[in-house]
Design a protein around this nucleic acid. Sequence first.
DNA 1: TGCACCAGCGCC
DNA 2: AAACGGCGCTGATGCA
Length: 585
Amino acid sequence: MEFEYITDLETAKKSLQSFNNDEYLFLDTEVAVKNFNNIDFFNDKIRLIQIGNYEKIFVYDMFEIPEFSKDLKPILEKKGIIGHNLKFDIKFLKTNFDIFPKIVFDTMIASQILAEGQNERHSLSAVSYRLLDDKIDKSQQKSQWNMKELSKEQIEYSAKDVDVLREIFQIQKEQLNSIKTPHKSTGEVYQIFGVWNPVAAVEMAFLPELANMELTGMPIDEQLLEKMLKEKQSDYQRRYIDFVRKYGADPFSPHQVTNWITRKLGLKLPKTQKGSLSSQDSALRQYIDRQEIQELLTIRSEKKIIDKLKELKQYTKNNRVYSEFKQIGAQTGRMSSMRPNLQNITRELRVLFRGLGEKQLIVADYSQIELRIAAEYTNDENMIRAFQEDKDLHKLTASIITGKPYEEVSKEERQMAKAINFGLIYGISPRSLREYAKNTYGVEISLKDAQEFQYRFFEYYKGFKKWHEEVKEYLHNHQKIEVQTLLGRRVVAYRFTDAVNYPIQGTGSDILKIAVAFFGKKKEGINANIVNLVHDEIIIETDKSDLEKAKNLLAESMKKAGEILLKKVPVKFDLSEVETWADKA
DNA sequence: TGCACCAGCGCC
DNA sequence: AAACGGCGCTGATGCA
């Protein structure tokens, strides 16, 4: 491996000539991180930027030549950039040097796409070992990158990371291009990198937007956060102490709660969760109104709120909370959010999130997206038509199941049908359906009734019947099945419920990512940023002066994204400007 | 003491 | 809307 370590500006500038004819470059950075448990994207400093093509690798020491960033900026923003976990590098390039690459190919994301939902590690060392059988030494990764003189090992290590990218990329490109997909992408990722896999195209276009979102942070009312925390905490502590004193049991110890209930009520419970304690079905039913049980549940939910407030506070600075998103967090392609998790904020706590100063929040979410996807996916005539006619699908299903005219469906029957419509996506069994109806609505139906409902459902929604039968059959013969989203994301499933769930949930995430990518590409000149994403929901913060523009662009993005994958079923979403996240219609 | 697991519960 | 599907966080529990 050949590389050159550069510490003076003149050599650095000259080195760039080597890249004149390249469409894309390989890149990595080394950052002097103060505390690896708490990486600070705003204050930690980039030490090295390593850039290479297929012939050369240059290692630039940015402590020695910070002004070189001016020369790098136009190149890194114009050419394609290939790297591993680029969200990390992009964030630091932006905060350190105001450099923001937008045309990217991330070998970590590519590895995740190629893994098809299987559990594999995707660190650079894991990927290079898997693809190249090359064991790279990561011992320098967390070394001191702020020393005046870097060691030979450190510099060699930094160049090696770029070196392996070249081979990894070539292999991944070939693998991605050999996957059969519903259509081929012809966008930037194809033009620059030669990769036409549409999933890769979407993920790579989405990536910079996600980096931007993390850097922007979700606006939060810090004062209100403090106030709520104080109030809840004093209330909770009083309640908790009272409870333990009165009943001699810690409400959070399953063991103690079980003993306590046995002592008190004379019955044994397998679990002490809310569902068991307040189940309409269990023997406990006669006790659910008992003060003790209510107190226990209240204490638990108060604790939950306090935990969440603390979690938010820990990551809040200057009225912004900074979360970390895993771009492919679930096998289905959904994202996950952590430190803090911004995807499980309760209704009650959403009042905390508001546009700051001259900013305004916009909240938009797709309506019934998974049902619509399922209709399109199975090509079910009746369900597609119902959506085209903008019918109330739950009411329709209720009328099919009961045999009643559409107009005469009762509220309770509609509720029941909701459970069925929803459950069918996940391959619900008559047994579970019965259980669910009982627990959720207190509707007692026999197993026979449940079977009858399912039968009628599948007789009417024939596309679903066919789909389920085919998947069952295949799974029975092969033990596993490779399913695909409407974009072409592939996931391997071993269970029937997974096989019918993954492509639907996965297509949902495809649509959201396309919408975000589209928004990102078109938002130039509009002062608006995405600040949170919750599976089928997009939250934007915009300058009030750009409110209309931002709203229109977001609506256009969501509509287009939906229409790319849903050809027969219309896409619907709600979109509104709000004071706080809680104000959503 | 630290790690791995699970129970419980919030969101879609 | 809701969970049989998908996540993450806290704290108890169990083991070394």
